[in-house]
Amino acid sequence: MMITATATAAAMLMLLQQAPAEGTDWDAEFGVEQKQRDPVTGELPVDPYEQSNANAGAAPYDSAKLVADFGGREGIARIAARTVDLSEADPRIADIFAAHDMVRLKRTLGEQFCFLLGAGCDYTGRDMRSAHAEMGVTKADLNALVENLQRAMGEAGVPFSSQYRLLAKLAPMSRDVVVR
């Protein structure tokens, strides 16, 4: 009697534990949303937010010389992309970048630099506080990013005093970025 009951229970258990059918859509089972990159821009979609140049976090410069020092809009975009590449490969801060859309970051960071330097771009990214929310950025992380930006600007031949003028716009934003 006892043996029969045990056997039945075991059989039931075996039945329940049967391997799921091949080709199960696990993402659908667990409600994972698959984000598709935009075929044109290559960026992942983001939640909607209000776009404004005020999100760039500071007023722009008005100096043609400064823009020329950075190599115009193209030079600025290259410096932003290089900064992101360097940071992604920088063991001190790579983990912060790993979970984010680098394609979008390169574009928005380039727009922000371009706007702040007065090269005539509009900034379409989010404000600094919400863009860095829950990243747990420290001052040491910020220093690492500054060093990467300085390296990118140095490689692009930007004069040191002009490098510092861009940093002068960015440094006060630490209040919105550094959380611990």
């Binding site: 001052k139 910020l142 002068a168 440094a171 006060p172 630490s174 209040r175 550094v178």
Partner: peptide
């Protein structure tokens, strides 16, 4: 304050 960051 901070010598580099924060309020300018």
């Amino acid at each position: 304050g901070d010598v580099v960051y924060g309020t300018s």
